[in-house]
């Protein structure tokens, strides 16, 4: 599903090394945490998965797309094969919950009949069916994040990428989000989640990849949150 093969990323403008010789593979159906200090390289990995950044050397393959050589025109196709959840939710504030989720389906040209059936389905999966007509500003942070998860899931992505999805939420709301993520993973979706939330990582007992100064320092099955001091 995802392969990083000796990937390095050097930002030319200030010569910062963001990633150095990073290699790992994520198989279909896996649940992987990416942990590390701020600036350890988590965001660079996430940005490469979305083709926001390209590797300086090495190869990155996501869902069969070669990120290093992916033509600009192919980027939307890559992003449609992924579901993405951000720390800041990134919802369209002038549209209702329903329309925010439907938007991801409109982009791929889904027939309105399918949209009308699928959107309520995925909204009830995140337990927000009753808020379909509300606007994002009328929702709590946890609810907004669940909307963004519904949007990420609506097109049945093979991989769900979550960048600090609980970063703005308290523990109770975070647990709700993690519950949904686990449910999604059990249905066969690969989940990659970058996080700082040590309690969550420790509780979930999933694979943990730890980054430090742009390199992988640990890659453990059923690992815990241990990024060193």
């Amino acid at each position: 599903m995802i392969t990083f093969d000796h990937v390095s990323k050097i930002y030319e403008d200030n010569n910062t090394v963001a990633l150095q010789d990073v290699s790992f593979t994520v198989e279909k159906g896996e649940f992987v945490f990416l942990v590390g200090h701020s600036g350890a390289g988590k965001s660079s990995v996430i940005r490469m998965l979305l083709c926001e950044e390209r590797p300086t050397s090495g190869t990155v393959t996501v869902n069969g797309f070669d990120i290093g050589s992916l033509p600009r025109k192919q980027i939307p196709a890559l992003r449609r094969s992924l579901g993405v959840v951000f720390q800041d939710f990134r919802l369209l504030n002038n549209r209702t919950v329903y329309d925010n989720v439907a938007f991801a389906m409109n982009i791929i040209g889904a027939p309105s009949k399918v949209v009308r059936r699928r959107v309520p389905e995925v909204l009830s999966l995140v337990d927000l069916a009753h808020k379909a007509r509300a606007y994002p500003s009328q929702l709590s942070g946890g609810e907004q994040q669940r909307v963004s998860m519904a949007r990420a899931l609506v097109n049945h992505p093979a991989i769900l990428i979550a960048d600090e999805p609980t970063g703005n939420l308290d523990i109770k709301r975070s647990d709700e989000i993690m519950g949904i993520l686990e449910k999604i993973n059990q249905n066969g979706t690969t989940v990659v989640m970058a996080t700082h939330a040590d309690q969550i990582v420790d509780a979930m007992k999933k694979r943990v990849i730890t980054l430090d100064m742009g390199s992988i320092v640990r890659d453990e099955e059923k690992g815990g949150y241990n990024i060193g001091v």
Partner: peptide, 16 residues
């Protein structure tokens, strides 16, 4: 701008 960026993250093409 924010809206356009979100659209791009969700996989909208330029023409869309």
């Amino acid at each position: 701008q924010k809206e356009i960026h979100i659209m791009k993250y969700v996989g909208a093409t330029d023409w869309f």
